[in-house]
Simulated assay, not measured.
Amino acid sequence: MLALLTIAGAALAVGGRVQGGVTVPTAVLDSQQQVTVGAAQHVRRAVRASELDLGQLAAGLSLAADTSHFDGQLKDFRKRYGRYQAVYVLDTNRQPVARAGGQPHPERVPERPTGAGSSDALAVDRLPVVIQHAPFTYSDGKRAVVVAEFDLASLKHAFDAVLPATAWVVDARSEVLASTSGFTAFQKLGRAELRRAAAADRPAVSLAGGGSVDAREIVASAPVRDGGRTPGPSWRVVTARSVNTVLLPETQARDQAKLAALAVAAVAVAVFGWLYVMWLRPLRRLVGDAERIADGELRAGVEVRRHDELGQVAGALEQIRLRLVKAASDRTPVH
């Protein structure tokens, strides 16, 4: 038993030494940076696609004869894409004339916009959204603007390739707009290494943390804006992946050492359980029987449940008990 536990302890010690010497290859860091850049591109494309979709909706609304035809188109649009908290049309007095979804927020829309556009991330009902708008004319030159409140929670699909890393979309102040994990909207990134990554002006990757492999992580960031004709919002995507989730020779050796230690510990527990059931518990029962006989308690017999050495001892105790009972009865006078 002691030997088994010693082996398990040695295996765990080997695992601990492996943790301290983990080296993450450059290829792993580059891969994390690439998937982060890809996620930033997905975010930019999603926002841009939403602007184009809203422009198509504006073109469709421009064909309507009056505002009574707006509601159906707005409802179909919101249902089709599923990424808007609200879609509505404002007249020249900034009054809603049709809507689908939540309450309109005309105060967040630019006055008399001359073209389509998007706001930066705003808090609407304490949730991060982007206000997108597209002006149009209908029915003999009447002016209106269609507005869509783009729900940034819908950006989570952009992070599929990032998993198992955690990803955040942050604004220029490092405030969180969306994430693959739980977050509070517009709260700053919690850890200093994440905030440093968010402040970088170009794609970056680094190895953060120290000590054991469980405390180290790969942190990468990439801007959503690409500097082209449609640069996108001034956001960044930040990702963090624990080195513990990367298949490295060192971590594999550590995991194998832990697995071996667990296996040895399981064997030790099984052996101890077998010894207890097969030997220790019967021995305790025999000790109790012997003490009872020594104290003169002879009424209860000694059960013989086995045919091995312990059974022979139990049988011998029973013979002793019977002889003591007979001797006691012989000494008792008959009246």
Rank of each mutant, 00 (worst) to 15 (best):
A10N: 05
G16T: 13
R17Y: 14
R17N: 12
G21R: 14
V22W: 12
T23N: 12
T23L: 14
T23F: 11
T23A: 15
T26D: 11
S31F: 07
T36N: 06
V43P: 03
A49P: 02
Q56I: 14
A58T: 09
L61M: 12
S62H: 08
F70K: 00
F70L: 07
Q73L: 15
F77W: 10
Y81V: 08
V89S: 00
R99D: 10
R99L: 13
P104F: 12
R108L: 15
R108W: 05
P110L: 09
L122Y: 07
V124I: 15
V129I: 08
V130C: 06
V130A: 05
H133Q: 05
T137A: 11
D140E: 13
D140V: 03
K142M: 03
V145G: 01
D151H: 10
D151E: 15
L152I: 05
A158V: 01
V162L: 03
V176I: 14
T180N: 03
G182Y: 05
L189W: 00
G190H: 12
E193I: 01
R196C: 02
P203L: 01
A208W: 03
G211D: 13
V213Q: 10
R216T: 11
S221A: 14
V224K: 01
G227H: 13
V237F: 03
A240Q: 07
S242T: 14
V246D: 09
T251Y: 12
L262V: 15
A270F: 15
A270W: 13
V271H: 02
F272W: 10
W274N: 04
Y276T: 08
V277R: 05
V277C: 06
M278I: 00
W279G: 09
P282S: 03
G288H: 02
D289N: 07
G301W: 02
V302C: 02
R305C: 01
H307W: 05
E309I: 00
L310S: 06
G311H: 01
A314P: 03
A316S: 04
L317G: 04
I320D: 04
V325K: 14
